[in-house]
């Protein structure tokens, strides 16, 4: 039963992700992306990682897509439809996606057997994050802080 839902939502996540890329209407693309993220959350659920699934839905579905759509709605959508596809952008994006895909496949190959599913709650997730992987965690948070300050500096109006 769980396996069935796992594959169902996995398929949905991929299909909606594709729809998000291929859809010419940006808002519909955003909605497809939302569906993809929520299905991904459901995939986490079916594989037992309840906490990560919920956080996936809350952060990506609840905050990030809202921000995307909010920004998109302030733009002129009709104009964006007419904009032609630029070969340079498409090829660069395709190249990056290909590299990412290979990396993920490589990472999956290096796994020995199925990963043990013990990260259902917050506690199981938090203790490795704050003890074993404290340094990478802190580095990432500093990186995010730098990005935030940079965004404020760029977006600030000159007095």
């Amino acid at each position: 039963m769980n396996g069935l839902f796992f594959y169902l939502f996995g398929f949905l996540a991929v299909a909606l992700g594709l729809a998000a890329v291929l859809q010419r209407n940006v808002i519909k693309g955003g909605v497809a992306l939302l569906g993809s993220f929520v299905s991904l959350g459901a995939v986490y659920f079916t594989s037992g990682a309840e906490f990560i699934g919920i956080v996936q839905v809350m952060v990506y579905g609840g905050a990030i897509i809202v921000l995307y759509l909010f920004a998109l709605m302030t733009m002129d959508l009709e104009k964006m439809k007419e904009e032609p596809l630029r070969l340079g952008f498409v090829s660069a994006g395709g190249f990056l996606a290909g590299v990412l895909f290979l990396l993920i496949v490589y990472g999956a190959m290096s796994l020995e057997g199925a990963p043990s599913l013990t990260v259902s709650g917050a506690k199981e997730l938090a203790s490795p994050l704050f003890y074993r992987f404290l340094l990478p965690f802190e580095v990432v948070s500093v990186l995010l802080l730098v990005a935030t300050i940079g965004a404020v500096a760029v977006g600030r109006r000159e007095e």
């Binding site: 909605v31 939302l34 919920i54 839905v57 809350m58 579905g61 609840g62 905050a63 897509i65 809202v66």
Partner: peptide, 9 residues
């Protein structure tokens, strides 16, 4: 919280 966050859609 997650469900009420996405209900705004």
């Amino acid at each position: 919280m997650a469900m009420s966050a996405i209900s705004i859609y």
